[in-house]
Amino acid sequence: MGAGLKRFARNRMALLGACVILIVVALTIMAPFLFPAGAFALVGPALQPPSARFWLGTDALGRDVAAGVAEGARTSLLIGMSAAMGAVVLGAVIGGLAGYCRGAVDIVLMRITEFFQTIPAFLLAMLLVVILSPSVLSVIIAITAVSWPGIARLVRGEFVALGGREFILASAGLGASGPRLVFVHLLPNCLSSIIAVGSLLVATAILLETGLAFLGLGDPNVMSWGLQISAGRVSLRAAWWVCTFPGIAILLTVLSINLVGDGLNEALNPRLRER
């Protein structure tokens, strides 16, 4: 791991990504101080272009776009991280069970995983949010429900590959119990892949969240980038800035997370290092 971090630090693109993420995190912390009125407050005239007073302009109701971007960062990061975490845990449990037990358990779990990978994820997420009624929690649940299959297949694949390796056999031959094999040998050896893929999952989760919010499936009481863009659509011809800036925020955040994820992948997975 130590050597991996050193390799990561040598990857300039990944470091750049990490810096941008730090800035976004700092923004979420500073938002209440920078914009004490909050993102929903009507602070000025409607549809003001960017100016010294309103850096990113105002929307059709006279709300500060910059305040929305700052508050939306918190929503996106919160939902993205929670959903990715949920998906990693769920996927690791299912994939781990399938890869460790093999046989009938494996076949059944992998059929279910393939099923969830086949069906249109975004539509299922939409349905789930509609049924659970839009809220931060329901969005997290919906995104988790459609994001876990990738992790499950990864963990299952790693478990199967490692299970055939002789050091696992050797440990079983010493009399190691199932939990010992899983937690001492199998999981630590695929942790780096899980970390790398899990970090990329945060980016996809954020894209899903903004997409849902754009369709009006976000929490109506919480400001988010998708909601801002959705609201700004109506005034697209007159005021380009309302839609543009939240979109750039999404782009930069997702891009940075991808860069960090790629960096982690290259640094932690020796197989890819040669490329």
Partner: peptide, 22 residues
């Protein structure tokens, strides 16, 4: 590639409208 991969589809659509239609 990295930029396209990180762009939300709906926002890209709106930006295309702003540039090429409006």
């Amino acid at each position: 590639t990295l930029i396209c991969y990180a762009t939300p589809v709906f926002w890209l659509g709106l930006m295309l409208i702003v540039v090429f239609s409006v």
